[in-house]
Nucleic acid binder design. Structure first.
Lengths: 107, 107
DNA sequence: TACTCATTCAACCATTTGGTAGAATGATTA
DNA sequence: TAATCATTCTACCAAATGGTTGAATGAGTA
């Protein structure tokens, strides 16, 4: 929990998540989208890995990175619970997210 | 977004949220639940306020703190979207949270 | 085997963070 | 008005964070 929220508190790490949501990648593939060094990026990836937000699979020379989502979900449940007013608006949220996904598939 | 996630990344601040979820309180009422100084607590409250997670209402000598939930919700939508596999499990999540709430009302 | 490529480790630095303590502010109470 | 109460402001400090560079590692490739 601690690890998940602090992992999410950095712009670069949220961007990594967004990119991995589009497609699994290696560190160097990701690096093209950032203006920081790959060593810095490697550190961010390690943090996301330790928060169990992403998985790393060794593929010979490369490491294939992919989203896990499990830890995100746990943190989300915490938030959903404490954002108190979810009760009336949960259905709306669901619709909204489903719409966002179909937009995604259209692009 | 930035502010919300980094606000949530601290244990004490999450505990503030949990306490305010039970009931609106003042700084000194909260202070009883923590082992840090009230100055430190005041800083945490300021951070939660700036992230628009809590509201502060001046009541004479006191400041009444309450949960806002709005910012939490926005962050939650981000997470829901990127935890990718929400699709199959969204209904389960809803049920789970509703159960949690009825537990809450029972206690 | 020597070389290159992808990634990580190590040392370092500036900034931010979370805590402290003392002083200041602003409203209430004696 | 003076004293008290709740909260915030102002330094100040140690530890954590996010970045850098250079060297090391470990797996393919020439």
């Amino acid at each position: 929990m601690e690890k998940v929220f602090s992992a999410l508190s950095d712009v670069n790490r949220r961007k990594i998540i967004e990119l991995l949501h589009e497609q699994d990648s290696t560190l160097l593939e990701l690096a093209g989208h950032f203006s920081i060094s790959f060593q810095a990026l490697s550190k961010h990836i390690k943090i996301l890995e330790q928060a169990q937000i992403i998985n790393k699979e060794v593929k010979g020379k490369y490491r294939q990175l992919s989203l896990n989502g499990h830890a995100l979900r746990e943190a989300m449940e915490w938030m959903a619970y404490y954002s108190s007013f979810w009760n009336e608006s949960f259905d709306k949220l669901e619709v909204q997210i489903r719409n966002a996904q179909s937009d995604d598939h259209r692009n």
